[in-house]
């Protein structure tokens, strides 16, 4: 018996949660399917394996309306829990509204072959926060990478090279906004790109309007993005959004010694100020 499905069955039978969000066998060999299980009869389809790459924290955001009556249980890896921390910090959910079925994770894969890039700099095989924990931790045979190593490499390039790189990459964007839709921290009820009075960002695709969108998205996630990589995974044009997000994270880390998603009591640098701030505009 799979212990996740046993836990889910018990939670649903005891009426403690409205649903259990988890993974089941996918329709393709290299994918798992996200499922929202609402009855204990369906709980047996829940699984966990190295294809469970998705960050299910997205289902805790308000638009899914899963936490309105009772808590919702969610199967989560260490990296996914960071997004829950962010949602709690930002008062999107209360800790009591989510029952975290934490899984000990030994790395996940998007294609069934290669380890997901985010796993190389992961120190959270065991989630920092959970209500129940399942799985076995295996010894990791992965060489740990500094999470900012690719940003540091990229920063060595000249301004022109970096500009050309991004203009070339962003030109591919078709503005489907899948990057926004899959992001657990992009929970605004009305996104800036959808506002029409005034129109902040033009809806058509062009180099300049694509740049406006991507800069706005990245800025808005500075100090908030936990690096789950869902935006990049959802982008069917392979725009390296993680590189942009990591640059923001690095700026925040270098200036404020802060990393998103590690402490639900901490205040995020961009949501806080100090009277001693050296910039006087903020006082």
């Amino acid at each position: 018996m799979n212990s996740i499905s046993e836990i889910a069955k018990k939670l649903l039978d005891e009426n403690r949660v409205s649903a259990v969000v988890g993974y089941s066998i996918g329709s393709l060999p290299n994918k798992t399917k996200t499922v929202i299980v609402k009855s204990s009869q369906q709980a047996e389809k829940l699984i966990f394996n190295n294809l469970c790459v998705n960050n299910l924290a997205i289902y805790l955001t308000k638009s899914f309306r899963l936490t309105t009556q009772k808590p919702v249980a969610v199967v989560m890896k260490g990296c996914d829990v960071k997004s829950v921390t962010g949602l709690i910090q930002e008062k999107q959910i209360e800790r009591e509204q989510v029952f975290i079925i934490g899984v000990k994770c030994n790395g996940v894969s998007e294609d069934g072959k290669n380890l997901s890039p985010k796993c190389y700099s992961c120190k959270l095989q065991t989630p920092k926060m959970y209500d129940i924990l399942v799985g076995e931790e295996e010894e990791k045979n992965i060489e740990f990478k500094n999470p900012f190593s690719d940003v540091e490499e990229f920063e060595k390039k000249s301004l022109d090279e970096r500009w050309n790189f991004w203009m070339n990459e962003l030109e591919k964007c078709v503005k489907c906004y899948a990057c926004r839709q899959v992001c657990p921290l992009c929970y605004c009820e009305k996104c800036i790109v959808d506002k029409t009075v005034p129109r902040w960002i033009e809806p058509h695709t062009s180099k300049s309007s694509n740049l406006s969108w991507h800069i706005t998205r990245a800025f808005h996630l500075a100090g908030r993005c936990t690096g789950c990589g869902e935006c990049e995974r959802a982008c069917h044009h392979n725009i390296p959004l993680s590189l942009l997000n990591k640059k923001m994270a690095k700026v925040v880390y270098d200036n404020f010694n802060y990393q998103a998603g590690l402490d639900d009591k901490a205040k995020s640098p961009l949501a806080d100020f100090k009277f001693q701030d050296k910039e006087d505009f903020i006082r």
Binding site: V21, I58, V174, C176, A178, A234, H236
Partner: peptide, 22 residues
């Protein structure tokens, strides 16, 4: 229920043809 409303299906589809006029 698990759909994230990302629209990738329609944007990549050879036959989806809906558009907005702005």
């Amino acid at each position: 229920s698990q759909c994230l409303s990302c629209g990738s299906c329609a944007y990549l589809c050879p036959t989806c043809h809906c558009f907005d006029i702005v």
